[in-house]
């Protein structure tokens, strides 16, 4: 089976029921609809950008990168979950919020310990959901809706609805800007690189694509579906935890609503990156591109004076266009 994922060809036992998929290079000599649409979009964006005041400045590039970081880190993790065929998690914002609260509440233990506690909590909560999906084939949408309510309810119960404040300000170091860029941007880049390496260079990464492409066939072929799915969700949990930690540091306190629209923003970035929502296709680097593209479009619209509502509308239209394009492409490739 060949997998179209932008990471080279995976070697794996032949799996019955998984049809051949053309790689990007073999999909045809002519440009795909996705590539053509992306090219048009980029042309429009470039035209809008070059005519927008102060778009091409170092400060603005830094702002785009900074506003990409929080969503981008989560989206990278969500990419692995989506590639594995687990669709999406709808408990992302709630998990990030709980992690943020834990991180701030444990600041008195020291920054290192607080970070470890927060990451461990994010990984545990998310990997548990992954286990239910991976081993018992639970519907991830239903499961994560339930998990989101449970986690959000727990957070409200724990905090009484009031903000969680840190006793010390050791976390301030996470707001630092080495070489002029926020630390979260470096974490985003490292996370993307690690995720891409896992997807393209490790057995578990290749198995993720195979499982996402055809889970029953992967199971029949003896692939460790449960274990690999849990690993993907655990990585996602670590990414959500990092986002929660940076969100907490940036806002210096954590309320139940801190996660805001993180869930849908992360899903949007993954989808705009071209990852198939049904699984089996996608890459971390493309998700990074998707997150950057959304931030850049929001930035251009803001620079040109469009309202927040128009920015949200543009994001919705963009996601819809990409999802339709990817769906059409995937459908054609399976014929």
């Amino acid at each position: 089976m060949s997998t179209d994922n932008g990471r080279g060809t995976a070697t794996a036992p032949p799996v019955q029921g998984a049809g051949p998929h053309p790689s990007p290079s073999s999909a045809g000599r002519r440009p795909t609809a996705f590539a053509a649409g992306l090219a048009v979009l980029l042309l429009v964006l470039v035209a809008l950008a070059v005519t927008a005041p102060r778009f091409a400045t170092v400060d603005n590039v830094r702002a785009i990168l900074a506003s990409t970081a929080f969503v981008g880190i989560t989206a990278i993790g969500a990419t692995l979950v989506m590639i594995a065929g687990s669709v999406v998690s709808l408990a992302t914002a709630q998990t990030a919020t709980v992690v943020a609260m834990l991180f701030l509440a444990t600041q008195h233990l020291g920054l290192g310990t607080a970070t470890l506690v927060a990451v461990a909590a994010g990984v545990a909560v998310t990997a548990l959901q992954g286990a239910v999906v991976g081993y018992w084939n639970a519907n991830p949408i239903v499961l994560t809706i339930a998990a989101g309510f449970a986690i959000g309810g727990g957070a409200t119960w724990f905090s009484g609805g009031t903000p969680v404040y840190p006793r010390t300000s050791a976390f301030e170091v996470l707001n630092s800007t080495p070489l002029g860029l926020p630390l979260s941007v470096y974490v985003l880049l490292v996370t993307a690189a690690v995720a891409q390496w896992v997807l393209s260079r490790t057995t578990a990464g290749r198995q993720l694509y195979l499982i996402g492409e055809n889970r029953p066939a992967a199971t029949a072929a003896g692939l460790p579906v449960g274990r690999v799915t849990v690993l993907a969700w655990a990585f996602f949990g670590a990414c959500v935890a990092m986002t929660g930690i940076f969100l907490a540091s940036f806002n210096t306190s954590a309320t139940v609503t801190l996660g805001g629209t993180l869930t849908l923003d992360a899903i949007a970035a993954v989808l705009v990156g071209g990852t198939a929502i049904a699984g089996g296709h996608g890459s971390a680097l493309r998700t990074l591109g998707g997150a950057l593209l959304i931030s850049a479009i929001s930035d251009v619209l803001l620079l040109r004076g469009f309202s927040t509502g128009v920015q949200i509308l543009a994001k919705g239209v963009l996601v819809l266009a990409v999802v339709i394009t990817v769906h059409v492409r995937t459908t054609r490739s399976r014929r």
Partner: peptide, 24 residues
């Protein structure tokens, strides 16, 4: 004058972009 919808994260994003737009 931007609508940040009582959202701290959105406020941070918009502030970053506006500060970049107008410069120091």
């Amino acid at each position: 004058e931007r609508d940040a919808n009582w959202d701290p994260k959105l406020s941070g994003d918009i502030a970053q972009q506006l500060l970049a737009k107008y410069g120091r």
